[in-house]
Amino acid sequence: MYLVIVLGNLLIILAVSSDSHHHTTMYFFLCNLSLVDIFLISTMVPKMIVDILTHSRGISFVGCLTQMSFLILSGCMDGMLLAVMAYDRFVAICHPLHYSVIMNPRLCVLLVVVSFLFSLLDSQLHNLVALRSTHFKDVEISNFFCNPSQVLNLACSETFTNNIIKYFVGAMSGFLPISGIFFSYCKIISSFLRISSTGGKYKAFSTCGSHLSVVCLFYGTGIGVYLGSAVSQSPRKEAVASVMYTVVSPMLNPFIYSLRNRDIKSSLRRIHSRSV
């Protein structure tokens, strides 16, 4: 599964970069999303493979915080990029004549940089809460990686303050991108209903279908993990939900975008024909 995720996302990046027709705003964001997915899965699966081979599940306190920091950074960046891509689709459908002016290269780079800085701030705030707690020894976490919710629940000091910070940061990192996606799709649906021709409706839906599928998969599993760790008492269910969020979701993204995108498929065919 790890190889499928890495190779699938690298193929998307290769297909986009090798074809000048794909040097557009939508594919620029798609390449960044693929890079973040590779980074997300690489924060935990290599360590898990080593644990399986060595029959050891141990990780140091610093290693746990480092893994948690990179996990939050890449996960939050994933959500922010999905919100940016939703805004891109909103401009393309609702303001097609002004699309090239609004979504200029400078704005696109700025949106990616802001997404990264916001994600970095979110991850460091989570680490700050964890660092304020007592250093633990021989503590078991019922997961295959340092789940932020489970790690922060181990805090032994000032639990009330830690919970306030934890849920505030979690709400902000989830609320902002979800609000952006919701607003964009409300506007898209409103424009979609005003389209009279069937061909126009199909074209508008086809540009959003892949993105909407990835959004539902990413946030559906993510919310399940975050809420499940707070209310569920079943370690097995939490681990299964975490696998869906951190492994299955990034693995399916390349298939969703490539199978529903004729341009990507044609580029991959050309790359294959040149290699043969």
Results as ranks from 00 to 15, higher is better:
residue 85 M to G: 02
residue 99 Y to D: 10
residue 63 G to T: 07
residue 48 M to F: 13
residue 46 P to N: 11
residue 90 F to P: 01
residue 55 H to F: 07
residue 50 V to A: 13
residue 54 T to Q: 12
residue 62 V to C: 02
residue 58 G to V: 03
residue 69 S to C: 13
residue 55 H to N: 10
residue 85 M to D: 04
residue 90 F to T: 15
residue 71 L to E: 04
residue 68 M to F: 10
residue 99 Y to M: 06
residue 61 F to C: 01
residue 46 P to I: 04
residue 59 I to G: 06
residue 71 L to D: 04
residue 97 L to K: 08
residue 75 G to E: 03
residue 76 C to K: 03
residue 47 K to E: 07
residue 55 H to Q: 11
residue 60 S to T: 12
residue 62 V to M: 14
residue 58 G to I: 02
residue 95 H to L: 14
residue 65 L to F: 05
residue 98 H to Y: 07
residue 72 I to V: 15
residue 47 K to T: 14
residue 73 L to G: 01
residue 97 L to A: 10
residue 58 G to L: 03
residue 57 R to W: 10
residue 74 S to W: 01
residue 84 V to D: 10
residue 82 L to Y: 02
residue 86 A to L: 12
residue 47 K to P: 00
residue 96 P to G: 06
residue 44 M to Q: 05
residue 62 V to Y: 15
residue 48 M to H: 08
residue 81 L to K: 02
residue 60 S to M: 11
residue 62 V to K: 15
residue 83 A to D: 03
residue 97 L to T: 10
residue 78 D to M: 13
residue 77 M to S: 13
residue 81 L to N: 05
residue 53 L to I: 08
residue 53 L to P: 02
residue 91 V to K: 02
residue 90 F to W: 12
residue 64 C to R: 00
residue 86 A to G: 15
residue 53 L to S: 07
residue 50 V to Y: 12
residue 92 A to S: 09
residue 88 D to A: 13
residue 67 Q to W: 03
residue 69 S to A: 12
residue 73 L to H: 01
residue 99 Y to N: 09
residue 94 C to Y: 11
residue 96 P to R: 02
residue 75 G to I: 00
residue 81 L to S: 04
residue 70 F to K: 13
residue 47 K to W: 05
residue 100 S to D: 14
residue 73 L to R: 00
residue 44 M to H: 06
residue 89 R to I: 07
residue 67 Q to S: 12
residue 98 H to P: 00
residue 80 M to Y: 08
residue 44 M to E: 02
residue 66 T to S: 14
residue 74 S to I: 03
residue 76 C to H: 05
residue 85 M to T: 05
residue 91 V to W: 01
residue 72 I to Q: 08
residue 69 S to L: 11
residue 84 V to L: 10
residue 49 I to N: 05
residue 86 A to Q: 11
residue 45 V to H: 04
residue 50 V to P: 03
residue 80 M to W: 08
residue 96 P to S: 06
residue 63 G to C: 09
residue 72 I to K: 08
residue 44 M to R: 03
residue 86 A to Y: 08
residue 69 S to Y: 07
residue 83 A to V: 08
residue 79 G to T: 00
residue 94 C to L: 14
residue 98 H to M: 06
residue 100 S to C: 11
residue 73 L to Q: 01
residue 66 T to K: 14
residue 85 M to P: 02
residue 83 A to C: 14
residue 99 Y to L: 02
residue 57 R to F: 06
residue 63 G to W: 10
residue 76 C to E: 13
residue 44 M to P: 01
residue 74 S to D: 02
residue 55 H to R: 14
residue 94 C to R: 15
residue 89 R to G: 05
residue 79 G to A: 06
residue 54 T to R: 14
residue 78 D to R: 14
residue 54 T to H: 08
residue 91 V to Y: 00
residue 95 H to Q: 11
residue 68 M to K: 09
residue 83 A to Y: 06
residue 73 L to P: 00
residue 57 R to T: 11
residue 63 G to M: 13
residue 52 I to G: 08
residue 94 C to H: 12
residue 97 L to D: 08
residue 78 D to E: 12
residue 68 M to C: 10
residue 63 G to F: 11
residue 79 G to K: 00
residue 100 S to K: 12
residue 88 D to L: 06
residue 46 P to M: 05
residue 48 M to D: 06
residue 61 F to L: 07
residue 91 V to C: 01
